[in-house]
Amino acid sequence: MASGNMKDIKRRIKSVQSTMQITKAMELVASSKMRHAKERALGARPYFNALYQTITRLAGATRGSESIYTKPREVKNSLYIVIAGDRGLAGGYNANLFKLAAAEMQGKQAQVITIGKKAQEHYAKRPVTVAADYPGIAETMRISDTHP
Score class of each variant (00 low, 15 high):
residue 93 Y to R: 14
residue 12 R to I: 03
residue 119 A to N: 00
residue 84 A to P: 04
residue 118 K to E: 05
residue 133 D to E: 15
residue 4 G to K: 14
residue 32 S to C: 00
residue 97 L to S: 04
residue 21 Q to L: 14
residue 32 S to R: 02
residue 46 P to N: 05
residue 133 D to M: 11
residue 119 A to Q: 01
residue 108 K to I: 00
residue 114 T to K: 03
residue 69 Y to F: 09
residue 61 A to E: 01
residue 127 P to H: 05
residue 116 G to H: 02
residue 60 G to H: 03
residue 39 E to V: 03
residue 56 T to G: 01
residue 39 E to Q: 08
residue 59 A to P: 04
residue 16 V to E: 08
residue 96 N to D: 11
residue 3 S to L: 14
residue 26 M to Y: 10
residue 73 R to Y: 10
residue 71 K to G: 01
residue 144 S to R: 12
residue 26 M to K: 15
residue 144 S to D: 15
residue 104 E to A: 13
residue 103 A to K: 13
residue 123 Y to Q: 01
residue 84 A to T: 02
residue 91 G to A: 02
residue 47 Y to E: 13
residue 54 T to R: 15
residue 110 A to L: 03
residue 13 I to W: 05
residue 120 Q to S: 12
residue 69 Y to S: 07
residue 38 K to H: 07
residue 60 G to Q: 11
residue 25 A to S: 07
residue 36 H to Y: 02
residue 144 S to C: 06
residue 93 Y to W: 12
residue 148 P to Y: 14
residue 54 T to H: 13
residue 135 P to K: 13
residue 97 L to T: 05
residue 88 G to K: 13
residue 85 G to Q: 06
residue 17 Q to H: 13
residue 6 M to V: 11
residue 64 G to W: 00
residue 75 V to W: 08
residue 30 A to I: 03
residue 56 T to E: 02
residue 74 E to P: 08
residue 137 I to P: 10
residue 69 Y to D: 05
residue 105 M to Y: 02
residue 27 E to I: 07
residue 99 K to W: 00
residue 137 I to L: 12
residue 82 V to T: 06
residue 7 K to R: 14
residue 129 T to N: 11
residue 115 I to P: 04
residue 108 K to W: 04
residue 25 A to M: 10
residue 145 D to Y: 01
residue 33 K to P: 00
residue 36 H to P: 00
residue 105 M to W: 02
residue 98 F to A: 00
residue 56 T to K: 01
residue 62 T to N: 04
residue 84 A to I: 01
residue 18 S to V: 08
residue 73 R to N: 08
residue 16 V to K: 11
residue 144 S to H: 11
residue 132 A to I: 03
residue 91 G to Y: 07
residue 59 A to C: 13
residue 104 E to C: 06
residue 24 K to H: 09
residue 136 G to S: 12
residue 24 K to C: 09
residue 80 Y to L: 10
residue 41 A to L: 14
residue 54 T to W: 08
residue 29 V to H: 04
residue 133 D to Q: 15
residue 138 A to H: 12
residue 70 T to V: 01
residue 52 Y to N: 14
